[in-house]
Design a binder for these strands. Sequence first.
DNA 1: CTCGATGCAAATGCTTTGCAGAAAA
DNA 2: TTTTCTGCAAAGCATTTGCATCGAG
Lengths: 155, 155
Amino acid sequence: MTEKQSIDEDTLQQLRKKLSTFMEKNGLRSTAQRRTVTDVFLRATGHLSIEELLALVRDRDPKIGYATVYRTLKLLKDCGIAYERHFGDGVSRYEIAFVDEHHDHLICLECGKIVEFENEEIERLQERLAAEHGFTLKRHTHELYGVCADCAATS
Amino acid sequence: MTEKQSIDEDTLQQLRKKLSTFMEKNGLRSTAQRRTVTDVFLRATGHLSIEELLALVRDRDPKIGYATVYRTLKLLKDCGIAYERHFGDGVSRYEIAFVDEHHDHLICLECGKIVEFENEEIERLQERLAAEHGFTLKRHTHELYGVCADCAATS
DNA sequence: CTCGATGCAAATGCTTTGCAGAAAA
DNA sequence: TTTTCTGCAAAGCATTTGCATCGAG
């Protein structure tokens, strides 16, 4: 698993294109607030909560309300450029949905660190399991909770 | 996967024992309400929400409040005889935690049907993945969402 | 008697929504 | 101009908690 780097311009363009197409198709408007929230989201890394996103957004425009952040992230999710995640702490977190990429998560129960993983074999087994039960698989959630090496060393 | 049957007396005894040991060790009291909630929970099958449990509990004792059901299910969870599950619809669901048994879930997005599955290979891969990232695995969530055969046929 | 448990209502925490004013198209 | 969007405050919802009272030990 490589470290998360800031997103390259090509990918950024691709995601923005996806958003603008979606907005056009649905008669939605490009506003300063939406541009700010979207830009903050796309340039951030990790798995951010609404609260964290709002703080970043307000660095640029302190007048933006949290309802706007909620509404904009719903939009980003609906157009397919954001994934909404739930790691059991009661808040929704958002991360960029890269095209043709999928991963699941390892979460440290002590420090909250989130590590992404991909495993082709598990994906295949999931498909097979679903098929065996007559299900057409649409999506899944798969989170591994444990204690990371750093935390194990500290305690 | 076998159909869920009502729980046999031996298993029931084993789980009740686990609960009473836990309660004794923590100076907790056996009350009529706790006995009712516990009995309803252990005799029910499936993945019940607090609301569903409360309805069953009130068939036996209409005066029991929902806070008591919440508190008792927290107790059952803490003593290890109940698992709390979250299937993305915003409510907590509870099922019996059988000793030495573990399973994950397939959920139909249309009718809400829940099917349990066990897969040794996925469990192994999870352990390996965690280890590769330096994590000591404590627990995991793994839910597959799709459309079941019945719903696929209907639509 | 004591201290934990219950039931109610109020509080909480996250998220959604109604609405009047602001601003895209 | 027309219709969507924003910001605020209020509402929603599942869950938790404070407190007076009850009841197990």
